[in-house]
Simulated assay, not measured.
Amino acid sequence: MPYCQPMPHRDDTFAIKICGLSTPETLEAALAAGAEMIGLNFHPRSPRYVTPQRAAELAAPARGRTQIVALIVDYAPEQAAELARILRPDWLQLHGSEGPEQVAAIRRATGLPVMKALGIATAADLEQVAQHRSVADRLLLDAKPPKDAAYPGGHGRPFDWSLLAGLDPAFRFMLSGGLVPANVAEAVRITRPAGVDVSSGVESAPGVKDAGRIADFVKAARAAAAELKKAGQA
């Protein structure tokens, strides 16, 4: 049974997600910029980590104004269900080594839509898309972390976006990894994603979000998506 009624989401809407928010000021900056999603990070090794209780406080003013995403790493289904009870997010983002069965189990346990992050470095990594596409509500294609990384994610490094050229054009995914205000428009033009996700790319230091960079990122991503939409209708 669901622990909350998620905020409705439309799969045909280009979504911009600002992840790893940890202060009321920067969360408000993401809302003011018009981000469709805000992410709260629950991985203890991340510099963006927040406790469930702190996350619930941060999420309160955002509820109903944007979609709240809880980023978790290798949670058991019962852990995910408990976090869902406390935070009442709109989405769960699985950013660990969760296989298709674990994704499905967490989805059943929480009753929430699930976004599964897949690390991409080579064409071989795209084999994961077919394995997870049928069990996740959305896939996030992210840069594969360095082998010695203490936590998942792109660590501010983009992957080769041309690797995605062979994907099914009907496949709607979100893009992450090394995105910044200066390159997000190019990334959108090349990969044609359903949305983009940024964390370190809008920071002045690890874990410290910058309101100006958030605004610049959202503006650049939104303009690029609008250009693609206009070109598709021409």
Results as ranks from 00 to 15, higher is better:
Pro2Ile: 00
Cys4Trp: 10
Thr13Arg: 14
Ala15Lys: 15
Ile16Leu: 07
Lys17Asn: 06
Ile18Leu: 11
Ile18Arg: 05
Ile18Thr: 03
Leu21Phe: 11
Glu28Phe: 09
Ala30Pro: 04
Ala35Asp: 11
Ala35Thr: 10
Glu36Met: 02
Leu40Trp: 05
Phe42Val: 08
His43Glu: 13
Arg45His: 12
Arg48Thr: 02
Tyr49Lys: 03
Tyr49Asp: 05
Tyr49Ser: 05
Thr51Glu: 14
Gln53Ala: 15
Arg54Thr: 13
Ala55Val: 01
Glu57Val: 13
Ala62Thr: 06
Ala62Met: 04
Arg63Met: 07
Gly64Asp: 11
Arg65Thr: 02
Arg65Met: 01
Val69Trp: 08
Val69Pro: 09
Ile72Val: 15
Val73Pro: 00
Asp74Ala: 00
Asp74Trp: 00
Tyr75Val: 05
Leu83Asn: 03
Ala84Arg: 08
Arg88Leu: 13
Asp90Gly: 04
Trp91Leu: 12
Gln93Phe: 09
His95Val: 03
Pro100Thr: 00
Pro100Phe: 00
Gln102Lys: 14
Ala104Pro: 08
Ala105Val: 12
Arg107Met: 07
Ala109Ile: 06
Pro113Thr: 03
Ile120Ser: 08
Ile120Asp: 03
Ala121His: 06
Leu126Arg: 03
Glu127Asn: 12
Val129His: 08
Arg133Ile: 08
Ala136Glu: 14
Arg138Glu: 00
Leu139Asp: 05
Leu139Asn: 05
Asp142Arg: 06
Ala143Leu: 00
Lys147Ile: 07
Asp148Val: 05
Gly153Pro: 04
Gly153Val: 08
Gly154Met: 05
Gly154His: 06
His155Gly: 02
Pro158Ala: 05
Pro158Met: 09
Trp161Cys: 04
Trp161Met: 06
Trp161Asp: 02
Leu164Tyr: 11
Phe171Tyr: 11
Arg172Gly: 15
Phe173Ala: 02
Met174Leu: 15
Gly177Leu: 08
Asn183Lys: 09
Ala185Tyr: 10
Ala187Ser: 01
Val188Leu: 05
Val188Tyr: 12
Arg189Trp: 12
Ile190Lys: 14
Ile190Gln: 15
Pro193Glu: 09
Pro193Val: 02
Gly195Glu: 03
Ser200Trp: 03
Ser204Glu: 09
Ala205Gly: 11
Val208Leu: 11
Gly212Trp: 07
Arg213Thr: 01
Lys219Glu: 15
Lys219Met: 11
Ala220Val: 05
Ala220Phe: 13
Ala221Phe: 04
Ala224Thr: 12
Ala224His: 09
Ala226His: 03
Ala226Cys: 09
